[in-house]
């Protein structure tokens, strides 16, 4: 997909403030903005239906991505193999890899 088509962005009814939100929305949702910058975006989103819709859409997307962090435990067999190898390296905590005290 090429750079955003101006007509599509204009179709969203974006103001200059809206474009600013768009430019920084990912940083905002990732908590990577300064407090002042985040507050500026938050204030605009609270008063702009267009940007509120965009923020909701992107936020839902990130929530779905975060669901992929399902609980994957390292298999028992892997723990045993790793314990054996660490023991071979002289590691004194090899038993702890298998969950033993």
């Amino acid at each position: 997909m090429s750079a955003p088509a101006r007509s599509q962005l204009e179709g969203l009814g974006l103001s200059a403030s809206c474009v600013d939100v768009l430019r920084h929305l990912w940083d905002y949702l990732d908590d990577e903005m300064t407090p002042r910058g985040a507050e500026r975006l938050r204030a605009h989103i609270a008063n702009c239906g267009q940007c509120r819709g965009l923020e909701g859409y992107q936020s839902s997307f990130l929530d779905t991505l975060a669901q992929l962090r399902s609980e994957f435990d390292a298999p028992t067999e892997l723990r045993q193999r790793l314990a054996d190898k660490l023991k071979g390296q002289g590691c004194g905590c090899w038993a702890k890899v298998r969950g033993e005290s």
Partner: peptide
């Protein structure tokens, strides 16, 4: 980042 707006649009 800007293209995300087009995706939403």
């Amino acid at each position: 980042a800007l293209a995300a707006g087009s995706v939403y649009a």
